[in-house]
Write a protein that binds this DNA or RNA. Structure first.
Lengths: 210, 210
DNA sequence: TAAAACTAAACAAACGTTTAATTAGTTTAT
DNA sequence: ATAAACTAATTAAACGTTTGTTTAGTTTTA
């Protein structure tokens, strides 16, 4: 689907507002005004507010799979190196697309069988299967220990990354980092998350003791 | 504040519906109908929908502080044992009050300076200070290592517990646990979370290698 | 019998969506 | 080449619902 400049403006504005005020808390009038388009254009282009939300999701979700499945094919890296690359990929996405991830978190909380809920579930399942495969490979080579709960492992990755990125203000204040510029803090938190998660994953996955 | 039966019914219904459909996604008519009361009673008792939400929060938040500050006073336990008790306390609350926690997660995502947002922030700060104290005590006795990022540590606890409890369906399916009864699964996930978080915290806090 | 609890109805505002009309740009016909 | 026909983009206004809240009146309680 090719979008015009105006359509893209609507999608981006919708993403931002949905992330800040929630889907139900954002009116199509809000979106139209902030995107600088007439109210009716939203229905005209996307059909409905619901379908505009779907357009936001499609824009972001199309690029997700690639990385994990690329890594699985790779033969020059150890399994732990692959896991570490995966961690960085997740951290980057959470930080660079924090608005979209806020929307995702909220949507997952809602118990309805919407098209979007189905999309998210499908994506999560697919990713988990790929990562299970990666872990099994590591177990075969003896790199990883037995009895690893991969779902719990992913809950760790996603849970911590969500928690930190959605409460950046709080984290910043609690560590007296208010003096940092926004980009510097992003860099700082990215590195911090990356190092910490890799440490946790090494402790969980391998038999090494340091 | 003492509440009548009817008021409690309204608060409980509101909590359930807010958790499932979100604050903006829930109408006061929904709440009134499901609670079996007249629409006007909500305004009559609570003043507004917003204040009903605050009543939901006050009901849950009044009992939070106690545990952490109790632990700090205790002299018969090692610092690691205190941390472990804290973990179980958090896990229990996330599992037993998962509806309320869904609401909390959502409220924290919204960028507005509401009374509720202020309440949550205040609570988080207070808890973090207490736990920082606990960690410092452990560092003084040599039980814990230096350079511990307590905010990151709490993000781990809250992040993983949130992630697992809010995606119980997914976790259940991914581990082929559909056969379990709901209470059995609750028991299972509680134990799983407890053991796993204690492992992670030990690895993060202490210098021990197993 | 006075205060508290409760109700059905009404309120204005906000909501998502549709309409009918207009503009601008492109294609077709002569 | 120019007038006519057609298409897509855009607009302001209106549509019917639903929203949270209030009113004015009735019933219950103490």
């Amino acid at each position: 689907m090719e979008y015009s400049e105006k359509q893209i403006a609507i999608i981006n504005t919708a993403e931002r507002l949905f992330s800040v005020k929630g889907f139900d808390g954002t009116s199509v009038r809000d979106i139209a005004q902030e995107a600088g388009v007439n109210l009716a254009m939203i229905s005209y282009y996307f059909g409905s507010k619901e379908k505009l939300m779907e357009a936001v999701f499609e824009k972001r979700m199309n690029v997700v799979h690639l990385k994990v499945e690329d890594l699985l094919q790779n033969n020059t890296l150890t399994q732990l190196e692959k896991v570490n690359l995966l961690i960085d990929d997740y951290v980057d996405r959470f930080i660079d697309q924090s608005e979209f991830h806020k929307i995702m978190i909220r949507e997952q909380l809602i118990e309805k069988n919407s098209h979007i809920a189905a999309l998210i579930l499908q994506l999560k399942k697919r990713n988990l299967q790929s990562i299970k495969k990666l872990v099994m490979d590591g177990q075969k080579t003896g790199e990883f220990r037995k009895n690893i709960d991969v779902a719990m492992m992913m809950a760790t990755l996603v849970g911590i990354a969500s928690q930190v990125t959605t409460s950046q203000h709080f984290y910043r204040e609690m560590n007296n980092l208010e003096h940092m510029s926004e980009p510097d803090f992003k860099k700082y938190i990215r590195k911090k998350l990356s190092v910490y998660l890799k440490f946790l994953f090494k402790a969980t996955l391998t038999n090494e003791t340091k």
